[in-house]
């Protein structure tokens, strides 16, 4: 998936810079809205079809939320630290960190809210979060505990990084990773809108 993403990005940039005229560029900004709607609908169907998620939800009950809770709080604190280190506006930093690794959505949302440069930064930061998750999951699973292997992956733990989590932990943790991914993903658009408009 990450390879498809990178190819699409590079192809898009090259087309935008060298090939497309202004009209075609405008068409693509409309297309991206509809693609996002279809994507969210399809993701919703995936979540709804996965009945195991609902069973685990009943089993762990409220305790299931401690992983996404830790991830969201940690990421926001991380965004706050980035804001100080890079001298960026707090609302932008917290919104970027609220992407939780979901690069396509956070990129599009923050392009709409704050312009192309902020959107690019959100996209790159969150695609790198996914990339570094791949690399850090084996290390975290070994040196912390197996649940913590979900933490770097955040919202991506339900799809792209799931195979990696499954490989280095257990099926049990993988189901929790799916649930975590669903909860984190649901919070991404809410948190981005909230933090961007807060300050």
């Amino acid at each position: 998936m990450i390879i498809i993403a990178l190819i699409s990005l590079v192809a898009g940039v090259l087309c935008g810079q060298f090939i497309f005229d202004t009209n075609t560029i405008n068409i693509f900004s409309n297309v991206s809205d509809y693609a996002l709607y279809i994507l969210m609908f399809a993701v919703g169907i995936s979540v709804g079809t996965n009945k195991q998620v609902f069973r685990k939800l009943k089993e762990y009950h409220i305790k299931i939320v401690i992983i996404p809770f830790g991830i969201i709080v940690g990421s926001i604190v991380g965004g706050f630290i980035c804001s100080i280190l890079l001298k960026k506006p707090l609302n932008e930093s917290l919104s970027i960190a609220s992407g939780l690794g979901w690069y396509s959505l956070s990129g599009v949302l923050l392009t709409n809210l704050g312009g192309a440069q902020l959107g690019t930064l959100a996209f790159l930061s969150n695609i790198m979060r996914e990339l570094f998750s791949f690399l850090s999951i084996p290390f975290v699973a070994k040196h912390f505990n197996k649940y913590t292997a979900i933490a770097p992956a955040a919202a991506t733990s339900e799809d792209t990084t799931l195979p990696m989590i499954m490989k280095y932990t257990s099926a049990d943790v993988a189901v929790m990773a799916v649930i975590n991914g669903v909860i984190c993903s649901a919070f991404v658009p809410v948190l981005i809108n909230f933090f961007f408009n807060l300050f």
């Binding site: 993403a5 699409s8 990005l9 590079v10 192809a11 898009g12 940039v13 090259l14 087309c15 935008g16 497309f20 075609t24 560029i25 693509f28 900004s29 297309v31 991206s32 693609a35 996002l36 994507l39 690069y103 396509s104 990129g107 599009v108 392009t111 192309a116 959107g119 690019t120 996209f123």
Partner: peptide, 9 residues
């Protein structure tokens, strides 16, 4: 989506 983002960037 990513392609469109690339285009706008």
């Amino acid at each position: 989506l990513i392609f469109s983002m690339g285009v706008s960037l």
